[in-house]
Design a protein around this nucleic acid. Structure first.
Lengths: 203, 203
DNA sequence: AATGAGAAAACTTTTTAAGTTTACAAAGTT
DNA sequence: AACTTTGTAAACTTAAAAAGTTTTCTCATT
């Protein structure tokens, strides 16, 4: 009965699949079996709808991350699991989504971030602390700095223009990069765990 | 130096990645580092360009199929290899491409098919004959009928609306369906080969 | 020097999706 | 029973952006 939420979820799925511009308000209304009017009853315009979608996606993602961390036996396991999730996330996201985002809706994200409604970057600090406590990351690392670096690394695959080349290999390159970064801040025990989970994935 | 071909290949890649409507002639020109004018020198309009892209894709696909058949030790191996190719093909194709195709450019395919410039459906007849010769398919099958049926089966995953649900499982469902159909027309030897290659994939 | 192929960018036109309005229907409320 | 709310359906207007055109300029070739 909560129309607003229903609309957001349907729009999220369609935006991710087809891109934002390709999804018209009429399509969305049709897909939901409601009238376009009703959408405009809940959202001033498409921009506001998109903002709602983005916020909801952020919340959902956050929840997923918390869940994975809660369920994992150690940080490295959690990280590899998250990595998988991220890959799936990007796999199911149409490049058109990113394109539209950059080309037409850039300002929306910017505004949301500025008004504090969307986090600018992920918070890996808890993860790093936990890693240190588990004896997986070295005790002497600069947590804040590493957090920032990790965010940069994570931003990388999003920035890259990828419609050239078969991007099968891309995923592996990225994983390699990320994993090597983690190695750099790990203890001996951490290294062994990384090797263990990494091998498990490769095979 | 062959502008026409260069344009077609770039457009093909971009259309497949972003959908057709999302790719403007300006983007395409930019991407190629040529002027929009030059594109219109070689193609009357976007429709003609799309037609060129579709024809080229058909040619390339045909070549790939011939190659796989030439290199495979038996029909079943070839089919599984082709299946992989198809999956990759669809994986790298934006849903927006199909959406645009159906919503706006429907008539183009229709025209191309009517004028005989595009084949309406794949020709599995050689494959079936080879399978019979290799003792993999039963000798008593009606080749033409089976060919038609296979084409229907192959058309299926394209028809389905998939922007609902995680479509990870979709691929497997489809493979299952297709493989079972093949089992139905196979000899004992064929069945064994199917089981062999199928198991190889599942694991 | 002349021609032609193309780049760059400004321009017009067409398309189409955004957003609005209107008319109407069902359901609950007073 | 009249009234209000909440919605559908569809026609409508308007704004934006992409299609397609034109103009001007450059550089390479003959």
């Amino acid at each position: 009965m909560d129309y607003r939420q229903k609309i957001i979820e349907a729009a999220a799925l369609m935006f991710r699949t087809y891109g934002i511009r390709a999804v018209t308000m009429d399509m969305l209304a049709n897909e939901l079996g409601i009238s376009k009017r009703t959408i405009y009853e809940k959202f001033r315009d498409k921009d506001e709808l998109l903002a709602g979608v983005l916020k909801w996606m952020a919340v959902k993602q956050k929840e997923a991350v918390v869940k994975v961390f809660g369920e994992s036996e150690n940080v490295i396991a959690a990280i590899f699991r998250l990595f998988d999730m991220m890959c799936e996330h990007f796999q199911n996201m149409s490049p058109a989504f990113r394109l539209d985002m950059e080309k037409y809706y850039n300002n929306i994200v910017k505004n949301l971030i500025e008004s504090g409604e969307l986090p600018y970057s992920a918070n890996n600090i808890d993860m790093l602390k936990r890693g240190i406590k588990e004896g997986i990351f070295r005790k002497d690392i600069d947590i804040d700095l590493i957090n920032q670096c990790l965010n940069e690394v994570l931003r990388m695959p999003g920035e890259k223009d990828i419609y050239r080349s078969e991007n099968n290999s891309n995923r592996n390159i990225f994983r390699d990069f990320y994993v090597n970064y983690l190695r750099g801040i790990s203890t001996q025990k951490g290294l062994e765990l990384i090797n263990y989970y990494n091998r498990k994935l490769t095979m």
